[in-house]
Simulated assay, not measured.
Amino acid sequence: MIVDCAHYQDGRRQHEGAMPLEQAAAHAGQGGFVWLGVFEPGPEELASVQESFGLHELAVEDAQAFHLRPKAEQYEDGTELIILRTARYDDEREEIDTGEISVFLAEHFVITIRQGIASELTGARSRLERRPELLRAGSAATLWAILDQVVDGYAPVVAELDRDIEQIEATVFAGAVAPTERIYSLRREATDFYRAVHPLLAVLTRRLQTGRAPAELLPYFRDVHDHLLLVNEEVAAQRDLLATVLEANIAVISVEQNKINLRQSATMERLTVLASVFLPLSFVVGFFGQNFGWLVSHITSFTAFLVLTLCGLLLPCVLLYVWLHRRHGRPAPPVPEVGSATRLRP
């Protein structure tokens, strides 16, 4: 879908509204340059653009694919293809939406093909149209306007990632367990964002070093490069910080698991003590509960019943108490110090 198409000459837009594709191709060789903006075109529409402006088939094929990294390609006819990655933070989902802009840059025309909702360029066009002194520099001015808007759009994403990381960091370093899935998700988003930012540095550096930009636009391209360098450093620091937070969260999880294991061990110890107490008592009760002749004939009075039953119950308890007391009160064997010599008896 063609969003806007305009012919610029002497630093100004030559008409109101968008031109048809055929008219734009005709104006491309009559001085100035044409800026054609297309959003998610279909194969037929893209073929029409290719035929009208004589684009290289490999360049058009590149514009149809979604790339993970920005890049720049120069073709024999002088047309340059610059692929940019855009980013936008969605507050509701707390995730980063990405898009892509393919810029076909030639002396007499600029074609921008946008993919994804995070690739809006209306602001860049309006801002450039208010700067006739930059439009007079030619089609390269549009590349600066696009790069400037894309890089400026990175700053809010960095700020929102910082906020999310600070929340996770505060949770982890307070000793609480943070959702590991959320940390992995943030690290994946930071990595994808880094892939969009870092390769673009090489594209801008090459353009500045090879002198492809007009002299009057060099300060503006250097300003974009400086902003991009700052964003790149911040994103790299966020990746490292998320790796540290992930390790710290794993350590907190290990501590919590150890606490659970200790509580389970203490519970099992109490249950073992109770079982040890009732085991001999159950044996005594079961023994005296047997209905055989000697036991029935010898327990003929209440006194005999008390002596046999109470002694039979109390004696195992006393013996068990003494054994447990001696077992817990026994000192642990001394641990020899490191480096000390042990003398053996002959």
Rank of each mutant, 00 (worst) to 15 (best):
F173D: 00
I183L: 14
Q14T: 13
F66D: 04
L217D: 04
L320W: 14
R187D: 00
A341D: 11
P156K: 02
V335H: 12
A65N: 13
W35C: 05
A155N: 09
P334Q: 11
A18C: 06
R69G: 02
R222M: 05
K71L: 08
V255P: 08
T79F: 03
V338L: 01
I165R: 06
R136Q: 09
G17R: 03
I83D: 01
L46D: 04
S254P: 04
F173P: 07
L128N: 06
G78A: 04
T342S: 06
R188Y: 05
A65Y: 13
A145D: 08
P336I: 03
P219L: 04
Q64E: 11
F287T: 01
E57G: 02
F53L: 00
E40P: 07
L314A: 13
R326W: 14
R206Q: 14
V318G: 09
E166N: 11
L201Y: 02
S301R: 10
Y154T: 03
V255Q: 11
R13Y: 06
F173N: 04
L204P: 02
F305P: 08
I111E: 04
G293H: 12
S265E: 07
R345F: 12
V38T: 05
D192W: 14
A6P: 02
A266H: 11
I2D: 09
A87M: 03
S119H: 13
Q23G: 00
Q209K: 11
A202Q: 14
T244P: 04
A63M: 06
V296A: 05
L134V: 01
L319R: 10
S126Q: 14
L58P: 10
A243R: 07
F287S: 00
E22M: 01
T210I: 09
L217M: 08
V34K: 00
Q14M: 15
R127S: 13
E247K: 03
N261I: 01
E233H: 05
P316I: 06
